[in-house]
Design a protein around this nucleic acid. Structure first.
Lengths: 191, 191
DNA sequence: TTTAGCCTATCTACTAATTGGTAGGTATTG
DNA sequence: CAATACCTACCAATTAGTAGATAGGCTAAA
């Protein structure tokens, strides 16, 4: 049932890669079936509907992200170092093309056309990320590490926007290194 | 043929609104037909294929954008004022929900799944916008208006990323005012 | 130990709806 | 007349989803 490398996991991984490439409407059960080496109907056994599949996928993504934030807090005391490591994580994913876009950022762009159950999960990820970044700026401001020109919340939202926009620019201009250029310039503000 | 409020224009406007809502794969000729009040086949008369339609749409968008940049340069001498007005333009579009997302930013997110002809047009818009912003930062740095902490190009790319990411966050969190919060914080850097 | 029952995972084969697109006809209009 | 704009009526392919069969494995009762 909870086999760590089950067919269900393979379906989720494949769906995630396809969504990252083309969004919710950019893939079909047939696409997954071909990659995973299974018949279309068998996917419905694991995930009765497309909404079930994508909701499960985002749920897992959100849990991984939360675990990632916790790991970053364990890996560094300084909030600035945490932000540096957060950005470095994405820079690696993008430059080695292993995971070149945040699956929630991508689906957020098509949010009005998303099934409500999926849209709600996507929004929750943004809220989680926004809250974690805000807490990082709050801690940094309190300890004197950061000298903020606006509220921690506004700094966090601006930070998040720049990171997501950086993914977009790197993709649009076909230049993965651009993400690093943008995030370096972003992090320079806080030194 | 070049009737300023022709059926073709109505199709383009409708397609644009549908793409802004859900991306390239988020709409069909049937959707447009219903809104415009015409039959599906008639759309093919004006735009033989979906690629033709969307390419024409992005082409027009790019021309409008370029005209907008020229207008901004006419409306203000100070590059900083130009950036303020650029951001204010989008803030208005987003808060009054008339045009809540850049159609090219949206399609950039699904770039790998886009027909190549459309993808190329989208990339050209990013290049144009990036070039205009870079020139604004160059002029501002030369005239002493801006004190930049990295190259004009890097500042421009970071600026563009933050604006696009701001659209994304406003949409994801269902809070149009968030775009203003983010861009205010962005513009504060250059005062 | 064998056997019966059940659960899981997969399959083939289907469905209704939708997709982008075509063929060919009919008005209207310069 | 000839071009433009629109129509009805198709088409093949694809979409998400269903029905029902089969095979294997686990468990519990005879």
């Amino acid at each position: 049932m909870s086999n760590p490398s089950s067919t269900a996991d393979g379906i989720l991984a494949c769906a995630r890669a396809l969504i990252i490439a083309g969004g919710y409407n950019g893939f079909s059960y047939a696409d997954i079936a071909e990659v995973v080496g299974i018949r279309k109907a068998s996917i419905h056994h694991h995930f009765p509907s497309k909404v079930d599949l994508v909701r499960a996928l985002v749920l897992r993504y959100r849990e991984d992200a939360k675990a990632g934030f916790a790991a970053l807090e364990r890996a560094a005391d300084d909030p600035r170092d945490q932000l540096v490591k957060y950005v470095a994580y994405w820079e690696k994913c993008i430059t080695d093309a292993s995971d070149p876009f945040c699956v929630c950022a991508l689906m957020a762009s098509e949010l009005p056309a998303l099934p409500p159950a999926v849209a709600a999960e996507v929004r929750l990820h943004f809220e989680t990320l926004s809250a974690w970044l805000t807490s990082a700026f709050e801690r940094g401001a309190a300890s004197g590490v950061f000298r903020l020109s606006s509220t921690p919340r506004a700094e966090a939202e601006t930070f998040m926007a720049t990171v997501h926009g950086g993914m977009l620019s790197a993709r649009a201009l076909g230049d993965p290194a651009l993400f690093g250029t943008i995030t370096n310039s972003l992090l320079n503000r806080f030194q």
